[in-house]
Design a protein around this nucleic acid. Structure first.
Length: 321
DNA sequence: CGGATTTGACCTGCGC
DNA sequence: GCGCAGGTCAAATCCG
């Protein structure tokens, strides 16, 4: 993904916006205040030029903001790539980590999942080393961003799980929790949850097998693509506790399950299916837009800028009438 | 009191 | 065969 995906040139469509705002204002005032006709042409031209200058400056400002945003994004992406390459090198070099190598690689790719091969099912050569693993239907992985201070290894995915073990693994200081579907043994699905070694705020959930039943509770946004999720659901796996809905007071968290295309749950496709690049691009653009609109600072600045222009123009019209 | 969670012990696979 | 590390079991504990 390149920053070029995002056209950083903003078209604020001031004219149409201006008219729309005017119309709204007319509705609000209950009367029509349109004095454009009375404004001398010369004066109006000067005002428009001045406004155009301001708008251009504002446009430039916003463009710069977006550029910075894209730069930050690219920077993060580069860091991620470095981490991936580093982990690959270290895994190749370190003999002690040969075991479960595939798992570690899957973790690194699943962490962000932008590589396009974010499939997380065990590859044939890996899964068939052991006859046991050949039986395993599929392995999928999901990453959930949570509050780092939240120590619970709970990923809300709409199913009920029973924790049956916890283990501190060698390559990660944070413990790994083992869950079985509460419908076991009829449902053989297992889940492993562990914090990412690179980013403790990210929970990596590894699912083994497929549920042979429907979800117990309405699927929270936790494992839906690009949906906010309340990470404070410390009792999410507790059937006695009601699902916690997202609220504005909850810490804003973002779930990225980029292994799963939209509508994954309804499709019997294997996780190995690659997501279309344009689809990923679209999702990422939507994500960036959503992030921007969610940012109160950004929206406030944008609203102030736009309203300033509108008010300037509206009052300017009145004053010059 | 029943179900879920915790946690130490045990099992299993793999590399040397 | 031994040691290591991940995975699982099951008794103890917790909690509503």
């Amino acid at each position: 993904m390149e920053s070029a995906w995002v056209n950083t040139t903003l078209d604020l469509s001031i004219n149409s916006f201006h008219h729309t705002s005017k119309a709204l204002k007319r509705e609000a005032d209950g009367k029509m205040v349109d004095s454009d006709v009375k404004v001398p042409v010369k004066h109006e031209a000067g005002v428009l030029v001045e406004e155009l200058t301001r708008v251009s400056a504002e446009n430039k400002k916003l463009t710069e903001m977006l550029t910075v945003l894209c730069e930050h994004y690219t920077s993060l992406q580069n860091q991620y790539k470095e981490l991936v390459s580093k982990s690959s090198e270290s895994e190749a070099a370190a003999t002690s980590s040969k075991k479960r190598k595939a798992e570690c690689e899957d973790y690194s790719t699943a962490m962000i999942g932008f590589t396009g091969n974010a499939e997380s099912s065990c590859s044939d050569e890996n899964s068939c080393k052991k006859p046991k693993e050949c039986i395993k239907a599929k392995v999928s992985r999901a990453c959930v961003r949570t509050d780092p201070s939240d120590n619970s290894l709970i990923v809300r995915d709409g199913y009920q799980w029973r924790k049956y073990g916890q283990k501190v693994t060698r390559d990660n200081p944070s413990p790994r929790a083992y869950f079985k579907c509460s419908f076991a043994p009829s449902c053989p699905v297992k889940k492993k949850v562990q914090r990412s070694a690179e980013d403790p705020s990210i929970l990596v959930a590894t699912y083994e097998g497929e549920h042979n039943h429907t979800r117990h509770s309405p699927a929270p946004a936790a494992l839906s693509s690009l949906s906010p999720v309340n990470s404070s659901g410390a009792t999410a796996n507790n059937p006695r506790s009601a699902p916690v809905s997202s609220s504005s007071s909850a810490p804003a968290t973002l779930t990225l399950d980029l292994m799963k295309p939209a509508g994954w749950d309804d499709v019997t496709e294997k996780p190995t299916q690659q997501v279309d690049q344009p689809a990923i691009q679209q999702v990422l653009v939507q994500q960036m837009a959503a992030s921007l609109t969610r940012d109160p600072n950004f929206t406030a600045a944008l609203a102030a800028a736009i309203s300033g222009k509108v008010l300037d123009h509206t009052f300017g019209d009145k004053f010059h009438s």
